[in-house]
C-alpha cells in the first residue's frame, strides 16, 4: 500500500496516488514473473514449450495492462478523492495488526490459545466490553470450535504447549 499524500488534502492518502502505487506494484509483480520465467527458460525445449513459456507472456500482459491503467489515471484530472480518511485507516489497522500477530502466533501457541487472546483483546479494546463478557465469549468460541472440529468432524487443529499440558 502506498501512502503518498497529495498535500492538498491533509485528511488522508489521495485515491489517485494510492491507485498509482497499486499500478506500480502490479508492474513489479509482472517484472518478478518475467524474471522467474526467464530463469527456467521461456523458449521451446525438446518436449515443447519450456516451463517459463506461459508465465513469461502472463508477465508481459500484466506489465502492459498496468501501464495502460497508470496512463489512464495520469491523464484524468485529480478529483481530490481520498483513498480513505486517516481515522478510517486507523480502524482498519486496529483489525489488521492484531490479526497479523494472531496469524504469526498460531504456530507457537496453537490456534485455541491464540484465538482466546484475539477475541478477548478485540472485545475489550475495540468493543469496550467488560472483562467478564469478553472472557466468556473468548473462552466459549474456542471451546465450541474444539468440540465441533476435533470431536465431531475429527479434524485436528494446531495445538500449543497449553494443550500438551492438559493432555488433549
Amino acid at each position: 500500500m502506498s501512502e503518498h499524500s497529495s498535500g492538498v488534502e491533509p485528511r488522508g492518502p489521495s485515491h489517485r496516488w494510492t491507485e498509482l502505487g497499486v499500478g506500480i506494484f502490479c508492474i513489479l509483480l509482472g517484472v518478478i514473473t518475467i524474471i522467474g520465467s526467464m530463469k527456467v527458460g521461456i523458449g521451446w525445449g525438446p518436449e515443447g514449450p519450456k516451463s517459463g513459456f506461459f508465465p513469461f507472456y502472463i508477465g508481459v500482459i500484466i506489465i502492459c495492462a498496468s501501464l495502460v491503467n497508470c496512463a489512464q489515471l495520469l491523464m484524468e484530472k485529480d478529483d481530490g478523492q481520498l483513498f480513505s480518511e486517516w481515522g478510517q485507516l486507523g480502524q482498519v489497522l486496529c483489525v489488521l495488526v492484531p490479526t497479523t500477530v494472531y496469524a504469526l502466533l498460531i504456530p507457537y501457541l496453537g490456534i485455541y490459545v491464540a484465538s482466546f487472546i484475539l477475541i478477548a483483546l478485540f472485545m475489550k479494546w475495540l468493543g469496550k466490553y467488560p472483562w467478564t463478557t469478553a472472557i466468556i465469549v473468548a473462552f466459549g468460541t474456542p471451546f465450541a470450535l474444539y468440540m465441533f472440529f476435533e470431536k465431531w468432524f475429527l479434524i485436528p487443529l494446531p495445538k500449543g504447549p497449553l494443550e500438551e499440558l492438559l493432555g488433549l
Binding site: 494472531y102 484475539l118 475495540l126 465469549v137 474456542p142
Partner: peptide
Amino acid sequence: FSIIAPVILV
C-alpha cells in the same frame, strides 16, 4: 460487530 468480527477472523 465487535463480537462477530474476531469470531469470523478465527
